[in-house]
Amino acid sequence: MPPRLLEVTDVTVVGGGPAGAASAIRLAQLGHRVVLVERAERGRPHVGESLPPTVLPLLQTLGVGERVEAARFLRPRGAIVQWDGLLRDVRDDARDEPGFQVDRGRFDALLLDAACACGVTLLQPVAAAEPQRDGGAWTVPLRDRRVVRSRVVVDARGRRSMAGSQPATAALYAYWRDVNHIDPRTRVEAARDAWYWGAPLPDGSFNATVFIDAARCAGVPRAQRALLYRELLAESTLLRSLLNESSP
């Protein structure tokens, strides 16, 4: 059965994460017809939960500022930073609004709902093959045998995009329960061969992430990665004390 043409549109956005959804919303606001293609089910968990205060003007431009505030995500001020052997208490200006610590499943769904409200055609869940140049236009074949044709393609798939590359850094992470943390601020720490990021999330869990050279994980079985993750956490000054009596 040959593929059938879904529709001709102005812009096809491939990837429904925050970057893709924000692009689709803004393009629709500017009067373009937009089709947004996302391969994953709505509400999937995802890392990348911290939104700094600098994102607030963008949320307002996209018309989602009030929706994000109504979602009652955590709003920490500043961070606790261990860098070059020095402990710093980094505080945002009290006169400014704080950023957000979001639940990515809920946040991503919120942006997709806003895109649909702007008139964006959302195709989800459906995977897209590589966009193909076709004369003066682009075609995006979908795995369900449909095709979207448009003048412009926005490839917002991150590392899977046409311009993507293999990461130089790998992130090992887990969501911990019953963490003995005092405040909602982000923890950031640098070590000799790794750096650490940790933050409490709206559901009461704590995301503890270790960033290392990707070569250290290449070809390593899952169980060994979990062991490496715990060994690295044990070397962290900021996260070790928080996670001693917790479990992922």
Results as ranks from 00 to 15, higher is better:
245 E>A: 01
163 A>M: 06
9 T>H: 07
169 T>H: 11
147 V>K: 04
176 W>N: 00
240 R>S: 13
49 E>Q: 10
152 V>C: 02
13 V>D: 01
58 L>C: 02
203 D>R: 05
53 P>H: 12
52 P>H: 10
110 L>S: 04
248 P>L: 06
32 H>M: 07
181 H>G: 00
152 V>K: 05
11 V>A: 03
182 I>Q: 15
3 P>S: 11
104 R>N: 08
101 Q>R: 13
199 A>P: 09
135 G>K: 08
62 L>A: 03
136 G>V: 02
164 G>D: 11
111 L>Q: 12
121 T>L: 01
122 L>Q: 09
142 L>Q: 12
119 G>T: 07
29 Q>Y: 09
189 E>Q: 10
235 E>R: 14
132 Q>P: 07
171 A>R: 08
173 Y>A: 05
245 E>T: 06
54 T>Y: 14
173 Y>I: 02
229 Y>D: 05
244 N>Q: 15
209 T>W: 08
15 G>V: 01
226 A>V: 07
21 A>V: 04
182 I>Y: 13
44 R>A: 07
191 A>L: 09
96 D>H: 11
166 Q>S: 11
11 V>T: 07
96 D>N: 11
150 S>P: 10
113 D>W: 10
63 G>W: 11
21 A>I: 04
81 V>Y: 09
178 D>G: 04
100 F>I: 04
227 L>R: 15
185 R>W: 08
69 E>N: 05
174 A>R: 15
248 P>V: 02
23 S>H: 02
131 P>K: 03
184 P>M: 01
174 A>K: 12
14 V>C: 00
31 G>A: 07
162 M>L: 11
242 L>Q: 10
53 P>Q: 12
170 A>V: 06
30 L>G: 06
115 A>V: 02
181 H>W: 14
140 V>N: 05
132 Q>L: 01
144 D>Q: 05
149 R>N: 08
91 R>H: 12
243 L>W: 12
134 D>H: 08
162 M>H: 05
160 R>K: 08
205 S>H: 14
140 V>M: 04
233 L>E: 09
188 V>R: 13
217 C>A: 14
26 R>N: 09
110 L>T: 06
209 T>L: 10
88 R>P: 03
193 D>N: 09
133 R>C: 00
48 G>Y: 14
